[in-house]
């Protein structure tokens, strides 16, 4: 089990945040531009921040950045790709790929596809698989179901919940959808007036 702990964690205009979470899905909401993505980016150590983020009492600043980012799995709202083929973005010979493809209604052949052929929704699901194959100890998800239809939304939710439960990892999940929050959230954070507050469900 992993514990994610934020001590006086502060980034840009946001007020300092103290937050500790174990194997629980925490939904994060707030108006657009309020700083939700900013907070996730800072926890992934992609931008400068004050205060500490800790994984199991190990400080972010004491851990090599490459290691930290493998542990803290961040899924940005938009997926990006750098090779032509889908499968070139995945580790070789990883059996789990097939399991995830099936769970997310993606065909086996999609591994051989050219990235430019994939729809936004397909790319979003493939990006989730790519992230989970890294076996992160924490998940930071920025609207992981934004461009999916209802059936796929439920499948993505199931996969994430399953992964979180099996590996006992904390999840911070940015969502605007009250129904989705109802379905997945076990605790809730909201950004209001630059302040990040815990709210009851």
């Amino acid at each position: 089990m992993t514990t994610l702990c934020l001590n006086e964690f502060q980034v840009q205009h946001l007020k300092p945040l103290n937050f500790k979470v174990k194997d629980k899905i925490t939904c994060l909401s707030g108006d657009s531009g309020s700083g939700k993505s900013l907070l996730l980016r800072a926890i992934a150590d992609l931008i400068e921040h004050n205060g500490d983020a800790l994984l199991d009492d190990k400080k972010c600043s004491d851990i090599p950045p490459v290691q930290w980012r493998k542990w803290v799995g961040f899924l940005p709202a938009e997926s990006h790709w750098w090779k032509e083929n889908v499968k070139d973005h995945f580790p070789e010979n990883n059996k789990q790929v097939h399991h995830f493809l099936k769970m997310l209604s993606l065909r086996e052949e999609s591994l051989d596809w050219d990235i430019s052929r994939c729809s936004t929704g397909e790319k979003q699901r493939l990006a989730l698989i790519r992230l989970l194959l890294n076996e992160p100890k924490v998940l930071l998800l920025d609207e992981p179901t934004a461009s999916l239809d209802q059936k796929n939304v439920e499948q993505v939710e199931t996969v994430i919940k399953q992964y979180a439960k099996d590996n006992q990892v904390p999840v911070i999940w940015v969502s605007h959808d009250p129904q989705q929050i109802k379905r997945v959230a076990e605790s809730m954070l909201e950004i209001k007036n630059n302040e990040i507050v815990e709210v009851s469900l």
């Binding site: 992934a44 992609l46 490459v66 290691q67 980012r69 940005p76 997926s79 990006h80 790709w81 750098w82």
Partner: peptide, 9 residues
Amino acid sequence: VIEARLILG
């Protein structure tokens, strides 16, 4: 794209 690659470690 550069950040996407950093994110994946």
